[in-house]
């Protein structure tokens, strides 16, 4: 069985620089080895250490689960530590991400557009002038929503209510809107019984 495809991580804005280079020391110029810090790892450092979010909040911002976020964070710290200790240069690139503020969709004429001024949300469509502008979320084509695993559904053991599992939200923290009991993850074992 092939492994589950990686979930796209949401990154608010691309970093202002593309890397760091060490200076001084005994390492010869031009022969510096590099550490490739992925964009999601840059974002996790920004959220957890610069914005002082806790892992729960940061996971919600990046649209991944809390354990995944902690794993990305551990990887990011390991890479940065490696660069600091062994004097490698850091190159920020790659990773499975999409940029949150990058693309917008106009519901009036169905066009997509970006905004060179990153911090301002566009009010009008640049093409038809309609104000029905929404954030465009690219759909990861390798994981269509219809083919979600059964384990991506939260269900209520008391009354059988089901809802789609939200990443970064624990099923047992959610309350069933029908009978007020706690939800749990619908796992594969239960599916066999059904």
């Amino acid at each position: 069985m092939s492994p589950r495809p990686t979930r796209l991580r949401r990154v608010s804005n691309p970093p202002v620089i593309s890397g760091f280079r060490p200076y001084g020391g005994v390492a010869k110029e031009g022969q510096a080895q590099s550490v490739f810090l992925h964009l999601e790892e840059y974002e996790v450092i920004r959220l957890c250490d610069y914005e002082n979010f806790n892992h729960h909040e940061a996971a919600r911002v990046m649209d991944v689960s809390r354990p995944t976020l902690t794993r990305i964070y551990a990887k990011a710290r390991a890479k940065i530590a490696d660069a600091l200790v062994t004097g490698k240069q850091i190159i920020i690139e790659g990773g499975k991400v999409y940029f949150d503020s990058e693309w917008y969709k106009c519901n009036g004429c169905n066009c997509l557009f970006n905004q060179p001024e990153k911090s301002v949300m566009p009010e009008k469509c640049p093409l038809c002038g309609s104000s029905e502008v929404v954030n465009y979320v690219p759909v990861d084509e390798s994981t269509p929503v219809t083919h979600r695993a059964p384990s991506d559904i939260c269900f209520c053991p008391a009354c059988g209510y089901e809802k789609e599992h939200e990443p970064s939200q624990r099923c047992k923290d959610e309350i069933c809107p029908v009978c007020n009991s706690r939800l749990m993850r619908k796992n594969n074992l239960l599916l066999k019984d059904i």
Partner: peptide
């Protein structure tokens, strides 16, 4: 390239 030149892209698939 367009980001650095501050040019807006509009994707219109018609």
């Amino acid at each position: 390239l367009l980001d650095s030149l501050q040019i807006q892209m509009v994707v219109y698939k018609e």
